[in-house]
């Protein structure tokens, strides 16, 4: 209780769940991933929550073992979906785009996962890939304190920036 009071007054934004708004409407949380399927947006990682992907009221991983046939099948389908949205892209598919995250709510992808999707997003939005690549770079977070965790891109934030870029 003491903690609730103290933390709520010092860090009200975080204590309420880091919710972000656009045009006065709450459209998500900085920390919680959303599902993106439109080729206009960068896609996040596959999510194994049920009954729908990115169900933030019931987090879950796939829990498929490395030898499970279902895992191979799921990866195959995800690769097919990426190729269908972007048939000309022959680059190797980054692993993070075809494997489910632990929480099913992972807000991030790797810089490689973002780079893979730049051409597609640029084509659909009729924007210069260079501008989008610069945007991805700008949205890439480095390791915390230089050695903790991995470089990553927040997909929701990147897509919000993408929309803002097009509007301007």
């Amino acid at each position: 209780m003491l903690l609730a009071g103290a933390a709520g007054t010092i860090f009200p934004f975080q204590a309420r769940g880091s919710l972000v708004a656009r045009d006065g409407q709450i459209i998500g949380s900085n920390l919680i991933g959303q599902e993106f399927t439109s080729p206009r947006y960068f896609w996040g990682r596959p999510s194994a929550t049920s009954p729908t992907a990115y169900n933030a009221a019931s987090s879950s991983g796939s829990n498929l073992s490395a030898t499970n046939k279902g895992l191979v099948q799921a990866v195959r389908e995800r690769i097919a979906r990426l190729h269908a949205a972007d048939p000309t892209n022959t680059a190797p598919v980054p692993t993070d785009l075809v494997t489910a995250s632990g929480s099913g709510l992972d807000p991030h992808i790797t810089p490689a996962g973002a780079a893979y999707q730049v051409e597609r997003v640029a084509r659909v939005r009729h924007l210069d890939p260079k501008r989008i690549r610069a945007l991805v770079e700008q949205q890439t977070e480095g390791r915390q304190l230089g050695f903790l965790g991995e470089p990553r891109v927040n997909v929701l934030r990147l897509n919000l920036a993408l929309d803002a870029l097009e509007r301007s």
Binding site: A15, G17, L19, I27, I32, E35, A56, S59
Partner: peptide, 28 residues
């Protein structure tokens, strides 16, 4: 932990409409 983003509230689960127009309920 709160400083880094761990929530501490007694709010109801937050219903939101995502960028792509889907409904998402965020547990708090």
């Amino acid at each position: 932990l709160v400083w880094q983003g761990v929530p501490l509230n007694f709010d109801a689960y937050t219903p939101i409409t995502t960028l792509e127009g889907r409904q998402q309920i965020i547990a708090q």
